[in-house]
């Protein structure tokens, strides 16, 4: 390894035993190797993580096969494990979260990037960054004690009166449930959508905006028809990033989703998510199959977020690099 001459930092330097010793004595080679080892720790840890998820879920993977993802029963007593209710709960709550958070976050990002004066925009962005730093258990705490009672006594009865004819808004108003979890998720992911979308919008070259204004577009028309379409891919990226966070969000969801592994059409019904079942059952899992089924759920969650994060980064990279080429 030490004698590999192709590493860019040392390419072109004389090498061979004597030169190596000389370089080693000056400390550079040693320093390079030491820091390289620490950089590689990141790679090793990530590979180990994937390997551990794979190995420890082997028993469940062999036992249930792909049917694991499509079976509804989760019964630890009879060792029947199907992930469908958790996958369903995770997807539904995340979708609800996005439904609320995307318009809100995008609107706020447009305001911050396009309309607000620089000082105001910077100050508001500072507050949004602080919001992103609030621990998820705090959101859960407010969810349990503030949002859940509010949902039970005000919001859910009101929804039932107005939209109760659809199957989505039927059934008893417990307060906890898929809808509440979706709302908490929405509040949690809004800061991420705002800060990434704002960056992307700011990277849109100024001529894009000015050309539209010069053609007689109003401020809103210039923003909506010239700036936002230009930043579209990057905004999609920010949404994927937020979705990945929503899928993996654990504590706040666990505290308000109701923790019931059943699939029901109503959004009022208590449900369960992958992350929530891991939080609740992992430390109490008895038996190897049970534990391995839980690890497989972790593997599913990992793969979902892995794919989404990869896509998100690609999209954001595409827009921001295109923007900076133009300016």
């Amino acid at each position: 390894m030490a004698s590999a001459p192709t590493i860019a930092g040392t390419a072109g330097l004389p090498w061979g035993p004597r030169a190596l010793i000389r370089r080693a004595r000056s400390g550079d080679e040693i320093a390079r190797l030491i820091t390289l080892v620490f950089a590689l720790v990141v790679v090793v840890l990530t590979v180990m993580l994937v390997e551990q998820l794979w190995v420890n879920s082997a028993e469940a993977r062999h036992h249930f096969g792909l049917a694991f993802l499509f079976t509804r029963t989760w019964d630890p007593v009879f060792s029947q494990f199907g992930a469908l209710p958790f996958v369903y709960g995770t997807l539904v709550t995340s979708a609800l979260g996005l439904l609320v958070a995307v318009p809100l976050g995008l609107g706020a990002a447009i305001f911050l990037a396009e309309l607000a004066p620089r000082r105001l925009s910077d100050n508001l962005t500072f507050l949004i960054d602080l919001l992103a730093a609030v621990p998820s258990v705090i959101y859960g705490l407010l969810g349990v004690f503030i949002l859940v009672p509010l949902m039970r006594t005000e919001i859910q009865p009101a929804l039932k009166r107005t939209l109760g004819f659809t199957p989505l808004f039927q059934g008893p108003a417990y307060g906890i449930g898929l809808l509440t979890a979706g709302l908490v998720l929405a509040v949690m992911i809004v800061p991420f959508i705002i800060s990434v979308s704002r960056e992307v919008l700011l990277a849109v070259p100024g001529d894009q905006r000015e050309a539209a204004l010069a053609l007689g577009a109003t401020r809103w028309e210039a923003t909506w028809k010239a700036v936002v379409p230009y930043a579209r891919t990057g905004i999609m990226g920010s949404i994927f990033l937020a979705l990945a966070r929503a899928l993996g969000e654990t504590m706040a969801v666990t505290m308000v989703i109701g923790n019931n592994p059943r699939i029901s059409a109503s959004l009022f019904a208590p449900g369960y998510s992958i992350a929530a079942v891991l939080a609740n059952e992992f430390s109490e899992a008895t038996g190897n199959l049970y534990l391995s089924a839980l690890v497989e759920l972790g593997l599913v969650l990992f793969l979902l977020t892995f794919v989404l994060n990869g896509l998100a980064r690609l999209l954001i990279l595409l827009t921001t690099s295109r923007g900076s080429v133009h300016t």
Binding site: A8, R32, A39, L40, V42, A244, E249, G298, F302
Partner: peptide
């Protein structure tokens, strides 16, 4: 010190690790 390949791989996996849900890190 980085050249091309190693830093690319390290950066990529670091971003990947950063996106892993915290509950999975727990596992």
């Amino acid at each position: 010190f980085g050249g091309r390949t190693v830093p690319f791989v390290v950066r990529y996996t670091a971003d990947l690790l950063n996106g892993v849900p915290s509950i999975v890190i727990g596992i």
